[in-house]
Simulated scan of single mutants.
Amino acid sequence: MNWITNYVRPKISSLLATREVPENLWIKCPETGEMVFHKDLEANQWVVPSSGFHMRIRARDRLKAFFDDGAFETIELPKVAVDPLKFRDSKRYVERLKEYKAKAEMDDAVLAARGSLEGVPVMAIVQDFAFMGGSLGMAAGEAIIKGFETAIAERRPVVLFAASGGARMQEGILSLMQLPRTTVAVEMLKEAGLPYMVVLTNPTAGGVSASYAMLGDVHIAEPGAVIGFAGARVIEQTIREKLPEGFQRAEYLMAHGMVDMVVHRHELRSTIANLLKLLTRQPAEALEEEAIAAEPVEAMGAEPAEAPESQAAG
């Protein structure tokens, strides 16, 4: 009886039991509706292989894909007051923060990390849309400013990956104050003579697009990213006109001069590395040597060669 109870019955129950399938085992492409195995998507930097649709990517995954050998060191970020306005909507702001911290495994929406990109020392600042839509609050603002200050102290260029719906409403005016504060940090970096590059990802909107996200030396956008201040529907209702096809998409903004280039996620590393090397003048000596070697003899001080008779006559 014990053998049947302890062995046979559990075996039968396990065979008949419904196995739970993880919700994120297969992910649907928003563009084509194709189901993609999450491991394949992760291995492809969260870009759908068939359609090329760029899914949102977590901050740490972004840093691993960006830095050499996936090695980076996050910097310690300042602590800020939690829920200074004692805000409450459907639930208390403190409770909402706890939920997102547990879910996103981050203290707030921004990570700042130092590392190298093809040998170039870089400070990367990444917004994570998974944490309250990447909204900009006091903690996120302090993280961005700390990243800039550390970059200035260590003489590193800054690459910022923007992904945000805008300012965080639960912090009111304290959130909006981060817009001028981060703008000042950008100006400090430029005064130090260090490059600042911005990668605009899907989406970059609200106050973020009206401050530090549009103050870079070079603006790169991922394909299909939505970039703008107000939403398309709000604009249409305000101006009472139909907006053009693809309005606020990365490709539309590049065609109208708001973005310098649209770059596939797989090519971001090499593109940014080449730009940083040019902006920091790292290859200048090598380029100068190549230019000298390629100069014609007469440019080096020798007598110019005589022109052919046909040219001299003319």
Rank of each mutant, 00 (worst) to 15 (best):
M1W: 00
T5N: 02
R9H: 04
K11R: 07
S14R: 07
V36H: 04
W46A: 04
S51F: 07
A59R: 00
K64E: 11
G70D: 07
E76S: 12
L77G: 00
P84R: 07
L85R: 13
S90N: 07
K91I: 12
R92P: 00
Y93P: 01
V94A: 14
K98C: 01
K103Q: 07
A104F: 04
P121F: 05
A124K: 13
D128V: 08
G141W: 13
K146T: 15
E154F: 11
V158S: 13
V159P: 06
F161M: 08
R168C: 12
E171Q: 14
L176W: 06
P180I: 14
M188N: 14
A192P: 12
G193C: 12
V198W: 12
P203N: 09
S211T: 04
M214D: 10
E222P: 01
P223K: 14
G224C: 10
I227G: 05
I227H: 06
G231T: 01
E236T: 14
P244M: 13
E245G: 03
Q248R: 10
A250S: 15
A255Q: 15
A255H: 15
H266I: 11
S270E: 15
L275V: 03
L278A: 04
L287P: 01
A291W: 05
A293V: 00
A294G: 03
A294N: 06
P296R: 11
A299I: 04
A307F: 08
P308F: 06
P308Q: 05
A313F: 07
